[in-house]
């Protein structure tokens, strides 16, 4: 058999947000009402996943200050996006603290005014001609990833009469198999909008919210250049199955 002498720590579905979370109104009609069917015997279908080491990743794919520059010939401050310059970095580890090397981390975000470069976003804050809002990279041998970007702005949305999303960056990680696949959002430490957000509130456990908070890291900030936020990603732990179940 192909790679099926392992399994992953069971996903704790009370830790993650439930499908039906009425405070986040869009979830009401998009949540299954039937129970999930648990696969008791894992198979290669769930224990494997794509390895992106051969994907051609461009030199600025993880640098959002540079990857949408209107005119690539510009130098210095000309053609840079508006906003607080930040480094977003962290480590992808599994639940046992084992680094996850060479895994794909993707991210997307609004610009400094809280506007997304998307056909469907009509918020009145302007687009930034020098900001696209997408990044990707592979983790290194020790599981580290890094992006350079600007801090996104908060923005209003139509869930309630006056609801605002805290500043956030969407982060997507593959991990070693499709069982570890995860998409989350990183929020910024200390943002007063975090506890007010209906999407954050889909989580029942305040400690689960803590896993989504990027921490200011002054040691890795660059003097006279940019602040750094550290955001580690923990994916499901991988276990070896040493004994045949017979």
């Amino acid at each position: 058999m192909q790679d099926d002498n392992k399994r992953f720590v069971e996903r704790d579905r009370d830790w993650h947000p439930p499908a039906y979370a009425p405070g986040y109104k869009t979830s009401v009609a998009r949540s299954p009402s039937q129970a999930l069917v648990s696969l008791q015997t894992s198979s290669v279908s769930e224990l494997t996943g794509p390895d992106f080491r051969q994907l051609r990743i461009g030199p600025h794919d993880n640098d959002l200050l540079m990857n949408f520059r209107e005119d690539p010939a510009l130098a210095g401050a000309a053609g840079l996006p508006v906003g607080e310059r930040i480094i977003l970095f962290g480590r992808v580890v599994d639940q046992f603290g084992k680094p996850v090397p060479h895994t794909l981390v993707e991210m997307w975000q609004a610009n400094a005014g809280g506007r997304y470069r998307h056909k469907k976003d009509g918020y009145l804050a302007p687009l930034d001609p020098n900001f696209g809002g997408v990044g990707r990279c592979l983790t290194d041998e020790q599981g580290w990833y890094r992006f350079r970007t600007i801090k996104p702005g908060p923005y209003p949305w139509g869930n309630g009469i006056n609801t605002w999303r805290p500043a956030h960056i969407h982060v997507s990680v593959m991990g070693p198999s499709i069982s570890t696949r995860l998409i989350t959002q990183m929020y910024f430490e200390g943002d007063p909008l975090i506890p007010l957000c209906p999407i954050v509130q889909t989580l029942k456990d305040p400690e689960a919210v803590e896993t989504m908070i990027g921490r200011l890291d002054m040691a890795r900030s660059r003097p006279m250049d940019c602040l750094a936020y550290r955001f580690d990603l923990v994916v499901r732990g991988e276990l070896q199955t040493y004994f045949e179940n017979q």
Binding site: K120, E210, T211
Partner: peptide, 26 residues
Amino acid sequence: PNSQPCSELMLRETASQTAGPYVHIG
């Protein structure tokens, strides 16, 4: 720094959030 232990031996998985309406950008 932003992880939570679920026991002495194991960390909690990072919590999931919706991919949102602008998932296509990423």
